[in-house]
Simulated assay, not measured.
Amino acid sequence: MILHELIDYQTLRLIWWVLLGVLLISFAATDGFDLGVGILLPFVGRADIERRLAINTIGPVWEGNQVWLILGGGAIFAAWPALYAVSFSGFYLAMFAILAALILRPVGFKYRSKKEDPRWRENWDRALFVGGFVPALIFGVAVGNVLQGVPFRFDGDLRIFYDGTFFGLLNPFALLCGLLSVAMIVMHGACWLVLKTAGPVNARARSYGSGAALAVIVLFALGGLALWQFVDGYRITSAIVTDGPSNPLLKTVAREPGAWFANYAARPWLLIVPALGFLGALGAFAGLRARLELATMAASKLSVVGIIATVGVSMFPFILPSSSEPRASLTVWDASSSHLTLFIMLVSCVIFLPIIVAYTAWVYRVLWGKVDERSITDHGGHAY
Rank of each mutant, 00 (worst) to 15 (best):
A29S: 07
P151L: 03
A265Y: 06
G156P: 11
E373Q: 10
A290M: 13
A213Y: 05
L147D: 01
F77G: 05
R206F: 12
G90T: 07
D232S: 14
T252K: 07
Y162I: 05
A94W: 04
G21A: 04
I160G: 04
V304R: 00
A254Y: 07
S323N: 09
L227F: 12
G73N: 01
A361L: 15
P326Y: 09
D334G: 11
V130F: 15
P317M: 09
K110C: 00
L6A: 13
A78I: 14
Y359W: 12
P354W: 07
M345V: 04
D117R: 08
G381C: 01
P268F: 05
P200A: 03
N123M: 15
D334R: 08
V273R: 02
L320I: 09
I70T: 12
L93S: 13
R52T: 07
L102E: 00
T310L: 02
A212D: 08
P248C: 07
L193F: 01
I355R: 11
G233M: 00
N263W: 06
A205E: 11
L14I: 14
E122S: 15
G149N: 07
Y264P: 06
A295N: 06
R153C: 11
V253F: 06
K301V: 12
L99N: 15
L169H: 03
D163V: 04
T30L: 11
R46V: 00
L214E: 10
G74W: 08
L342G: 00
G149V: 13
P135H: 15
V37H: 05
A47K: 15
A275D: 08
S322F: 03
V253Y: 02
L302N: 01
F109S: 10
G211I: 12
T30V: 01
D378F: 10
L41N: 08
L35G: 09
N65I: 06
W62V: 03
G380H: 15
Y208P: 00
W269F: 10
F109E: 05
